[in-house]
Amino acid sequence: MADFIKHPVVELPDRKPEPVFGPDELVFSEDEKAQVKTWISRYPTADGAIMRGLWLAQEKFGFLPPEVIQLVADEIGIPYANAYGVATFYTQYFKEKKGTYVLDVCTCFSCQLCGGFDMLHYLEEKLGVHKGETTPDGDFTIQEAECLGACGSAPMLQITNGPFVHNLTEEKIDALVDALREGQMPAFTSVTLPQDEDELGGNRRTDVSATDTYSVRPVSETVR
């Protein structure tokens, strides 16, 4: 065999890694099975439910090692290879274990010009790890994200595929990290439309506890 086949330049993933979850953990509850059934019924073929199935599994197990993907594939009734193909296509499906909180800092486009990299670097320094890494205590993983669709309230970040935190500043990051260490997830924040500020005197929703406004940080605060 050619040398490079025996010693590939890029390390290939272990095809059959040691399972993380044992057989007794690897089960869906009756309720979860019912959810999967509902999703299957909404699409012309069962395949359509795979993305919801993977989301369900990720919420339950935290990430998607091969045995979890297998579990989802079996529950939906599709080949493992199809489920694996889908799981590996999307960035939000975690293929390896992450920290309790995954902080996705947007540094794309508008966020870049409004201090996104400053925020990323501040967070890296604060937590002592680089982007893509998890803190030794397993609390935080920092990631660099592509545009998350909140460019007007740049710079921003998302916590573990959930809440957005808008208009980031160093103080805001300090407070956020403290709160998360206490196990407190920030509430959903509704960003007030400037025209609503003018015409309604503030946010139009009365059913949200947290609001923020579209704003921009002063010139001096951002490095480009």
């Binding site: 699409y43 439910a49 919801r52 193909g85 296509f89």
Partner: peptide, 27 residues
């Protein structure tokens, strides 16, 4: 009306990619 939740891929906004994503394929 069925709400389909994506999972992080810009390309899914392209209409034919979106269709493959809905069908449960790589997008």
């Amino acid at each position: 009306i069925v709400i389909h939740k994506g999972a992080g891929a810009y390309i899914c906004g392209e209409e034919s990619s979106l269709m493959n994503s809905l069908e449960g394929k790589r997008a």
